[in-house]
Amino acid sequence: MSDKQKAIVSLTFASETCSASLSALSSPDTSNSQPQTTDLSVILKDLDSLLSLIYASTTKISLVLKPSSPTYSASLTPIQDLSKHISRLVHCNNLLSPDIHGLTLSKEVAYLTTTIIESIRALVQTFLNLAAHPSSIASSSQAGEEYLVRTGTVHDLIEKARGPKGIPKDNLTAVRKKWKEDKGPLEDGFREVGEMIEDANQGGSESSGEDDDGWDELGLGSSSGRKMDKDELERTKNVHKILRLTTLLHKRILMDLLSSSSSVPSNVALDALLVQSGALLAASDDLVSTLYVPQNSQTVHEELQSFLDVVKALQTGLQAFFPAAEDLEKQFSKVTIQGVGVTQGSTEQTGDKVKTNKKWFDTCFDQIYKLGATFENALKQNIADSVRGS
């Protein structure tokens, strides 16, 4: 068997290893109840080392299999190493347990690993194509560009995964990362409602259709040919008030409760809280979508109820961050700093901070519910008036 044929066999095996690994990541084996290690720092260190080795292997393969002058004999060892590293990467990934290390962390690492392996498989397939059609592809500049682009993608993904914003160091960091991703869209929705109010006050929808940005074609925006009426504008203002508080609430959770310096609850509580962040974003988007003219009071009411239900679920999820006073005392009594028990003063300061945070969040939720109740009553009146008018 020639060196080229051996290289093709090795590349084929590497591609199959990638496919098997991706399948394993999408359907992890939970039968291994006793992993070799549960030490998160060890697992993450091994993951980082394997990513470094994969980076080096793909670099070597790309250098020796350059389309213009491939050296197949020199590619065999790095290709075989690549297959081994990928298998070990998946094994290391499977050591992460949602129950022990947190569901959010496990899913985030699995996602990052999956994107890297997918990019490696694409790179390997590029070299298989080059080996299968050397004469027609070698002279093509596009072929040379493709393998460089594929290699660059692998390198970029690995560098990001190993960077400060890549693989989280623990479940709290993973939850914070995802929470930040929801923060931007939430603020966008709040800003969008503010712009609706501004446009309505300025009579924006009575302007020419030159600035409709295509919304007419989607049945949104100024397609009705009129601006908001008094009731529609009032409804929009009410939603804006509520979203102002929920957007601030979401931000304060990130700053005060998901910070590294705060008292962190169990991974189960963190994972459950993150679910509510996504639910709040979806409910917010649905509520905002009801404000385009012409509005329907019944639809706005239904989405408002769904939105407030999510807010209540979020409040329930926050209870894990505010244990009862006696439970808080027990927690502090177990804490030691470098072998020395926490002082009475530090215990009182931390307890006061928890109480202050709880008071702020309780007040915020109360204000949201008051605004929501007032708005609900107004909507019910709008609906009743509409029924009588028909």
Rank of each mutant, 00 (worst) to 15 (best):
D3N: 13
E16R: 12
S23H: 11
A24N: 10
Q34H: 15
V42T: 15
A56F: 04
K60C: 01
P67H: 05
S68R: 14
P78L: 08
I79T: 14
R88I: 05
T104K: 04
T114S: 15
I116A: 09
I120P: 08
V124P: 02
Q125I: 12
Q125H: 12
N129A: 15
N129P: 01
N129E: 15
A132R: 14
I137S: 14
E146A: 02
Y147M: 08
R150N: 03
V154R: 00
E159I: 01
A161M: 00
I167T: 03
L172F: 02
R176L: 07
K177T: 01
K183P: 01
K183C: 07
G184R: 07
F190D: 01
D199W: 03
D199K: 11
G203V: 06
G204A: 12
D211H: 14
G214T: 06
L218E: 14
L220A: 05
K227M: 02
K230S: 11
E232T: 01
R235G: 04
N238G: 15
S260E: 11
N267W: 03
Q276F: 02
A282R: 13
A282Q: 12
D286H: 11
L291P: 04
N296K: 10
F307S: 07
V310N: 04
Q315Y: 09
T316Y: 13
F321E: 08
A324W: 08
E326P: 02
S333F: 12
T350I: 07
V354E: 00
T363G: 10
T363W: 05
G372W: 06
E376I: 03
G389L: 08
